[in-house]
Amino acid sequence: MDTQAYREIAWNGIWKQNCGIVQILGLCPILAISTNIVNAVSLGLATILVMAMANLVIAALRNFIPYEIRIPVFILIIAALVTVVDLAFNAYLHELYLVLGIFIPLIVTNCIVLARVEAFAAKNEPGGSTVDGIAMGIGLTLVLAVLGAMREVVGSGTLLSGIDMLIPGAQPIVLFGADYPGFLIAILPPGAFIALGCLIAGRNWIEARKQARARANPPAPSAPADAPAEPA
């Protein structure tokens, strides 16, 4: 695979096929955990880890997995990898583990992981598959981070609260002073839906504008040769 192909895969995962705001997959963790940036990004990183490992392992082993039982084998591998990540979080990031709770084990059931394994890793070589897993994971993490930031800023007027769970001694940023009454709904589940709706609308708006601009002045090299000639 050349650089162009890798770039294509990465762009696909981060923007074109973004699993959070285009494919709308894996909503359960996205909505439940994005109450602040630290939680959101932590779960995103755990998901990247699992997706990269799952894609790598399955792409490497794809010739040994009989077609008939590929789904149970995929699930077995994903579940084992998630268990490893879960135990590692429990041991070394215990506070964060308590916050993320059930959502780390639930990565197993996150359809994105199985979808990428089935759609990509089972048919491609390990290098590209790992890039795909990482890119898809980064796409999800970006959505989580933006959602987390929106909800945290609006809901509690801070950024990066709980950062000391990752970097001991680090302090969160207080944006609107200690008297900010907070906008609790942003942190509660309805806020997650409203914020995600805004993100999806924002992405659609950008795409629509891009298309409108492309229509207005079509790029020269791709101008169709068989188009009716304009009168000079």
Binding site: P181, G182, F183, L184, I185, A186, L188, P190
Partner: peptide, 8 residues
């Protein structure tokens, strides 16, 4: 509803 959830 928004306000009662936000500022109960």
């Amino acid at each position: 509803c928004l306000m009662i959830v936000a500022y109960p």
